[in-house]
């Protein structure tokens, strides 16, 4: 057998197969209502993705069309949630507004995962000066409340979707560094890693083939929590006028505009917030379920 096969077997025996079996066993042992809640979370996330994908091509015209004869109307057959201050259909705007939230959340968390996990796993496995240096940099980034840091950078760079993704991605990166580093520190001492090294695998190979894949479970949980936080942050920045700019609808800027007319047309303020809450709840339910499945004792970071 080659080194690769041997180690693959060792890793398989020690890591993935056992873990996979354990996940299935834990899923079965989870109380029934927890299983339902996890599935409900997954359902909400899937529905949100579908809406973000399908709504803009189908409903964008309706979401932007102004009708001066129908301003700030209540719910009706034509407009199930009523209209806003320019007579635009609120429901269409709400559905179209899912896209920026989803794009920013997945973009930012994707960036943070890629960057944070790569760096975290590498320094966790390597240790030494690099590890020390990276931790100090993470400490500095942790010295800022995330939203304030994002506000300051957005103010300097100017509001745009790309900037939102970049800024929130960088703000979330330290959390992923910490989680991935901690996971790599544990995996580093596993027997299959030792076996791979004993068989003469290079450091990089051990890192990529053995340490990284087995350190992914906590990262996955952090991803789903990060997504819920990113949706909240994006909507907060858009609410403050530093994110998605009108007339492109996003839940944050819709709430900010609807707030001014909420005495006359309360749905304009109620609906965007409900949409945010439902999607964030979906990510949280999914995250809780994943956490229980992957490692019930692990505490993800919530900053």
């Amino acid at each position: 057998m080659t080194e690769g096969q041997l180690v693959a077997r060792a890793a398989w025996g020690a890591g993935s197969a056992r873990a996979e079996g354990a996940w299935r066993a834990r899923w079965r042992r989870m109380p029934r209502e927890r299983r339902w809640l996890t599935l409900a979370g997954a359902g909400v996330v899937a529905a949100c993705l579908c809406v973000a994908l399908l709504a803009p091509p189908l409903l964008l015209d309706r979401a932007l069309a102004m009708r001066t004869q129908a301003l700030l109307q209540g719910p009706s057959w034509d407009h199930p949630l009523g209209t806003d201050q320019f007579g635009r259909d609120l429901l269409s705007r709400l559905l179209v507004g899912a896209r920026p939230s989803v794009l920013v959340a997945f973009g930012a968390v994707g960036l943070a995962t890629l960057l944070g996990t790569t760096v975290g796993v590498a320094v966790g496995y390597a240790g030494g000066v690099a590890d020390h240096l990276v931790l100090r940099v993470a400490d500095v980034l942790f010295a800022f409340p995330g939203l304030l840091l994002a506000m300051a950078v957005m103010a300097v760079l100017g509001p745009s979707l790309g900037n939102l993704v970049a800024v929130l991605g960088l703000v979330y990166t330290p959390q992923f560094v910490r989680v991935a580093r901690a996971a790599a520190l544990t995996v580093r001492t596993e027997q299959y890693v030792e076996a791979a090294r004993a068989l003469g695998a290079s450091g990089l190979r051990v890192l990529v083939r053995h340490v990284a894949p087995n350190a992914m479970a906590p990262v996955l949980v952090q991803v789903s929590l990060g997504l819920s936080l990113a949706v909240l942050s994006e909507s907060a920045l858009s609410f403050l006028g530093l994110g998605i700019q009108p007339p492109v609808p996003s839940w944050g800027n819709m709430l900010s505009e609807g707030r001014q007319f909420m005495e006359i047309a309360p749905w304009n303020a109620i609906a965007p917030g409900l949409a945010i809450a439902v999607v964030v709840l979906g990510f949280n339910l999914l995250g809780d379920g994943l956490q229980e499945l992957l490692d019930p004792r692990m505490r993800p970071e919530r900053v």
């Binding site: 819920s228 709430l255 909420m262 965007p272 917030g273 809450a277 964030v280 949280n284």
Partner: peptide
């Protein structure tokens, strides 16, 4: 879990 999911600026509104 609901409390964690509701944005504070909406709750305030």
């Amino acid at each position: 879990l609901l409390g964690l999911s509701v944005p504070n600026f909406w709750l305030g509104t």
